[in-house]
């Protein structure tokens, strides 16, 4: 593990913000367990819990907390300067931080989604959701990491994207689904699991191409942005 990744991981789990990672996955697994233990048919609870909570809330919100936490909190408190005053390519810094964000988000989301999917249908559904979550974690993390470099309010803007763009417009305006990471994740999970509980609204080629484009594009933009990172004078 690179030193930047080590500091980032220690920083991520050393802050109280890390506690925010626990409730949502626990709620997801808890709801699935509750429905299963009361023998509620999966057709009644599967879609609202797995998609409505798991893919529309847990995955993007966890990715938002982690994606903005790996760099944004260091920008906010000024500790980033200790990393930037090193003769390292800015690409290496971004890749290390993005790597940590992807791994933490993917593990935090894929495990509970796998358990909830297995409880709702089959292990295959669980695998589909876990793979979808891992791919989604890549795109979300790159996007939120970039947000933390281009705005002073990355969490607010990220929430607007999740709640307004994906949550509201994505339900009612079909055109916006093409630019919705949530829809790509549903497509991947649906293709892998072939479950009736998931309904893909975006074709697989579109999901693949746009996921790669968002991940790579946001990463390249973040590297370029970090190269021009400026510090405002505090006493002048």
């Amino acid at each position: 593990m690179s030193t930047v990744a080590y500091i980032t991981t220690r920083g991520l789990f050393g802050r109280r913000r890390a506690l925010l990672l626990l409730p949502l996955p626990l709620l997801l697994v808890g709801l699935a367990l509750l429905c299963r233990s009361y023998d509620v048919p999966a057709t009644d609870w599967g879609t609202p819990v797995l998609v409505g909570l798991g893919l529309a809330v847990v995955l993007p919100v966890i990715s938002l907390i982690v994606g903005t936490g790996v760099l944004g909190s260091e920008v906010d408190d000024g500790t980033l300067v200790h990393i930037l005053t090193k003769p390292m390519p800015r690409r290496d810094i971004i890749l290390a931080k993005l790597g940590v964000a992807i791994v933490v988000s993917a593990v935090t989301c894929a495990v509970p989604l796998f358990i909830a999917g297995a409880l709702a249908g089959s292990a295959k559904l669980g695998v589909g959701l876990a793979v979808g979550a891992a791919v989604g974690a890549c795109a979300y993390s790159a996007f939120f990491l970039l947000l933390s470099l281009v705005t002073r309010r990355p969490v607010l803007l990220g929430l607007v994207y999740i709640l307004v763009w994906e949550g509201l417009l994505g339900r009612f305006v079909s055109g916006t689904r093409v630019l919705s990471i949530e829809q790509y994740v549903i497509t991947f999970a649906d293709r892998i699991s072939s479950s009736d509980l998931l309904v893909a609204r975006v074709s697989l080629p579109v999901a693949v191409v746009l996921s790669v484009l968002i991940t790579v594009g946001c990463t390249v933009a973040a590297v370029d942005r970090l190269r021009s990172f400026s510090m405002a004078g505090e006493t002048s």
Binding site: I7, R10, G11, G14, T79, V81, H82, T85, P87, E234
Partner: peptide, 28 residues
């Protein structure tokens, strides 16, 4: 970034990674 091979900076903002020990921080 290559200039940092020959340049050190101590800026006014006293931000340090508080979760590390001084040794861990300087070794990093």
């Amino acid at each position: 970034p290559e200039v940092y091979r020959h340049l050190g900076l101590v800026n006014e903002r006293e931000a340090v990674h508080g979760f590390l020990t001084a040794e861990e921080f300087v070794v990093a």
